[in-house]
Simulated assay, not measured.
Amino acid sequence: MIIRKLGLASAAAALAMVPVAAQAADTSRASAPAKASNKMAGTPTVALGVALAIAIGAIVIATAGSSQPTSP
């Protein structure tokens, strides 16, 4: 029983000390400059065109076919 309470108390103390230790840590990191420009910048027109074509194709396939019910 005492060992269980000791474990619980040490876990609570550890949880209470973690934010204090993280706040005391040195967080002054230097950022590195980008070496190459982003080649994906701008509007992704090809991707938008493909997505639009897929959406239109799905609508055409879903609405195509006979309007007669299949049940007797």
Rank of each mutant, 00 (worst) to 15 (best):
L6C: 07
L6D: 10
G7F: 05
L8F: 05
L8H: 06
L8W: 08
A9M: 13
A9G: 12
A9T: 13
A9C: 13
S10Y: 03
S10I: 10
S10W: 03
S10F: 04
S10T: 15
A11D: 04
A11N: 05
A11F: 06
A12I: 08
A12L: 15
A13R: 04
A13V: 12
A13F: 10
A13I: 13
A14G: 12
A14M: 12
L15I: 06
L15D: 01
L15Y: 02
L15M: 10
A16R: 01
A16K: 00
A16S: 05
M17L: 15
M17E: 09
M17D: 06
M17G: 07
V18K: 07
P19W: 03
P19L: 04
V20R: 11
A21H: 07
A21R: 12
A21Y: 03
A21T: 10
A22L: 13
A22I: 08
A22W: 03
A22N: 11
A22T: 12
Q23M: 14
Q23Y: 14
A24S: 14
A24W: 04
A24P: 00
A24Q: 10
A24Y: 01
D26E: 14
D26G: 06
D26W: 01
S28F: 01
S28G: 06
S28Q: 14
R29V: 11
R29D: 07
R29E: 09
A30L: 13
A30I: 10
A30G: 11
A30W: 04
A30R: 15
A30D: 10
S31I: 10
S31H: 12
S31N: 12
S31K: 14
A32P: 00
A32K: 14
A32H: 09
P33G: 05
P33E: 07
A34K: 09
A34V: 09
A34F: 05
K35R: 11
K35M: 08
A36M: 05
S37N: 08
S37G: 08
N38K: 05
M40C: 05
M40P: 00
M40Q: 13
M40Y: 10
M40N: 15
A41C: 00
A41E: 07
A41W: 00
A41L: 06
G42Y: 02
G42W: 04
G42V: 03
T43N: 07
T43C: 02
T43Q: 08
P44H: 13
P44N: 15
T45V: 11
T45G: 00
V46K: 07
V46I: 10
V46Y: 01
A47D: 07
A47C: 05
A47V: 03
L48H: 07
L48R: 15
L48C: 02
G49F: 01
G49C: 03
V50P: 00
V50D: 03
V50A: 14
A51T: 12
A51H: 04
